[in-house]
Amino acid sequence: MEILSSRTLLISPDPEALTAFYRDRLRLAVAREYPGGTVFHAGTGLIEIPAHMAATAAGETGDVLWLQVRDIAATREALAAEQVPIVAEPETKPWGLIEMTVADPDGRRLIVVEIPADHPLRRDVRG
């Protein structure tokens, strides 16, 4: 599987406090903010705190890997052929990304993402 980019998602029962910690106390630079989340630079990696994926009231948290691929349909077929558990089939989310979820042997979620050509993340914003 060819990975174009990746990030670690930190799921929290209090995403605002966690965002403040990484932004204000660790002073990580913000790579991107969007309605419902913040992505931070972390060396050569990225850390995302997605408020729209807040932990349950029971306080369950977890690690989620976000893996960008070139072609989600081809990736889905390759992963299925390798008997990787597909938790959620590819679908276009309200925010415009095509996402599917798979699981590793420990049950950790991996969100596999294709960014469509017309999505704002793919636009060249240079003047």
Score class of each variant (00 low, 15 high):
M1Y: 08
I3V: 15
L4V: 12
S6Y: 06
R7H: 15
L9Y: 09
L9R: 03
L10G: 01
L10F: 09
P13W: 01
D14M: 02
D14H: 10
P15K: 08
P15G: 07
F21Y: 15
R23I: 08
D24E: 15
R25K: 15
L26A: 10
L28W: 05
A31C: 03
R32A: 15
R32D: 14
G36M: 06
G36Q: 06
G37D: 02
V39I: 13
F40T: 04
F40L: 08
H41W: 06
A42C: 11
A42T: 02
T44M: 14
I47H: 09
E48P: 01
A51P: 07
A51D: 03
H52I: 02
M53W: 13
A54C: 07
A55K: 01
A55W: 01
A55T: 03
A58R: 13
A58S: 14
T61W: 07
G62I: 07
V64T: 14
L65P: 02
Q68A: 15
R70D: 15
R70V: 05
D71E: 13
A73R: 14
A74T: 13
T75C: 11
R76Q: 13
R76A: 10
E77P: 00
E77F: 00
L79R: 12
A80T: 08
V84F: 04
I86T: 10
E89I: 00
E89S: 10
P90G: 06
K93R: 15
I98N: 09
M100R: 10
T101K: 11
T101D: 05
D104H: 04
P105I: 09
G107S: 04
G107Y: 01
L110E: 05
I111Q: 05
V112H: 04
V112R: 04
P116C: 00
D118T: 08
P120S: 01
L121D: 03
R122P: 01
R122A: 15
R123Q: 15
